[in-house]
Design a protein around this nucleic acid. Structure first.
Lengths: 339, 339
DNA sequence: GCGCTGCATTACAGCGCTGTAAATCGAGTG
DNA sequence: CACTCGATTTACAGCGCTGTAATGCAGCGC
């Protein structure tokens, strides 16, 4: 049988509550008493019973982390960091997959699940501003992602997508490229990243050719492959660089280019976005914008913990970096390798 | 305030315990009483409090799912399925990352974590047979993966790696390939998959050339790229097909081939293993062995639930399938596309 | 010496649920 | 009609912990 608070109390010759106070770092415990209690805890190998603590506190010790799909590399790697960071906050993280469907996201907010949650961190796709308003204000919520940043009035953590798009495009310009295309799922998705692309072109005095901003109509690699492929097959001259709103789109774009005899990066340099972990196994490896996932995770949890009903939503910004690999630096370069 | 069992009891005019019995589907509740209670539950919107239930039952309602790294696509996609399936079992899944380090894996078994666990599903890399023996027998454990299958005496769930390796190699032979190479991390890792490769060659009357079985010394794409690259650069004639023990190795091998002017699959067909979800964005997309992850998840949880201390370990087998894509069927084929 | 102050500690009532033992009910039996 | 025996329902004691209120106690001023 595991030792309980009363066992420790007996061993240390104090009351159960004093042991509780020591365990929880409460003030007003004499140093000598504390030492005696700690010795007893150590001797018995006592560990607090979380279920009982949560029951007594009316908390569950569980937060939800909801993403469209956990097996999408970007979310998987973010989830991994969320797990690491949550430990320091004493939270168990319950992952959820919403498929990006509004009903699934809403269901989480409206507590269809039996276990009471202490909070939710979500990367929403379908949620509307009204949904946010109607949610239970007692359930802390932190949102991630560009869609949430633009349209939803709640605590938010993310990177400066516009600035990141600018930096990525600047990188292409610094390589001497002048015909820079942009590929994004479409209006309303990843707009800020594309605005950053426009910023960079404008700042370089090149002007923005909106005909070079192609909507893929979807975020899968195939969507980009088809969109760019059709465009090239229609006889348009190939650009000398492409900035894509996600790595998947970049990989699809590279397929379209290579299948048509164009070399990456010699003929066309490509920069992606997200830094999804596909090792260094693709050809070429991808230059990309890498959001600081550790920061995103940590800031989210802090915001969740500090949230109070009725106060104004906070918006926190995590840093990012540009990781230069083969798709802009050339095949065989070792720059920017992972680890 | 959330309604409690007593609130429902009062509303239905029965005792708290009867409501509890209804909620838990116990026998010996008169149908009329059950209906009355269900109506009250529905009216009040009652949901059981998990923390309290767990406290009363001495359980935590939490199981751990431990993998080396959650951001490795194979594990991420398995974790996603584990999540789906655990819901039906009423378990919250707490993910853990061990990095494949023995200490981290052992720490999980020996309960360093404050929250009591109802069980552990783990994909171990460093764990030894002694570690398994010395673990707390009261903590149900289910292991995944080939290493565990071969060396560790505990409940195990996995696919028939040897048969899968045979099927994959057979596929290459059925394409008319005769010089089939095998790439695996090294002795002791993924041996069964390579044994399946040997089976296929032997059954086809070709005999096994052990010089064509290359150990990569690691499981990253770069390891395969370097190993195969060095081998080709040493002047060996290229094989006309390669079977690799994992998709990462396959992608690295393809890099090595393409960088040396060889075409995949025209010159060299490649089959990987694991079906990691990298969409259809790589060039070429990869023919691979796809383990049935849903089955693996479900069988693991069943085994965990049904485990009793002191009984013989059970070994369960999940199905797999061969997904044929471009790396054997040719660029532009649509066969085996995801979704 | 007395009352007061403030730190240190304790007693105790739950948190919401389940397991156990006991109570109650109702039909069948003699 | 009392009695037996399942079927059904209830009472109640915790599960291990924390919040609150109360208590103990030393030092201080008068």
């Amino acid at each position: 049988m595991r030792p309980r608070l009363t066992d420790v109390a007996e061993a240390a010759g104090v009351s159960m509550k004093t042991v509780s106070n020591v365990v929880n770092g409460a003030e007003h415990v004499r140093e000598e008493t504390r030492q005696r209690v700690l010795a007893a805890i150590d001797k018995l190998g006592y560990r607090p019973n979380i279920a009982a603590r949560n029951l007594a506190q009316g908390r569950s010790g569980v937060i939800a982390f909801a993403v469209p799909q956990l097996d999408r590399p970007y979310f998987a790697s973010l989830a991994a960091r969320m797990l690491d960071e949550a430990e320091a906050f004493g939270w168990i993280v319950q992952f959820h997959q919403t498929g990006g469907r509004r009903e699934a996201e809403l269901a989480l907010l409206t507590e269809r699940h039996p276990a009471r949650l202490d909070g939710i961190v979500m990367s929403p796709l379908g949620l509307t501003a009204e949904d946010i308003q109607e949610r239970d204000p007692a359930l802390p919520l932190v949102l991630l992602g560009e869609k949430a940043a633009a349209q939803l009035n709640a605590d938010h953590v993310g990177i400066d997508n516009r600035e990141a798009g600018r930096v990525a495009t600047d990188h292409l310009l610094s390589l001497g490229r002048r015909q820079v295309m942009a590929l994004a799922p479409g209006p309303g998705m990843d707009d800020e990243r594309i605005n950053g692309y426009r910023d960079a072109l404008t700042a370089a005095g090149l002007g923005v050719d909106e005909d070079l901003v192609l909507p893929t109509g979807g975020l899968r690699g195939q969507d980009a492959e088809r969109t760019l492929g059709d465009w090239l097959d229609a006889g348009h001259p190939a650009p000398d660089a492409i900035f894509t709103a996600t790595d998947w789109l970049a990989m699809g774009a590279i397929r379209a280019l290579v299948l048509r005899g164009l070399r990456v990066p010699e003929d066309v340099a490509v920069v992606g976005f997200d830094d999804i972990p596909y090792d260094l196994a693709t050809l070429p490896t991808l230059t990309t914008v890498a959001p600081d996932r550790v920061a995103i995770a940590r800031l989210s949890l802090q915001a969740l913990r500090d949230q109070r009903p009725g106060t104004e939503p906070v918006r926190l910004e995590a840093p990012f970096s540009l990781v230069v690999r083969e798709s802009t630096a050339g095949i065989g370069t070792s720059a920017g390798q992972r680890e």
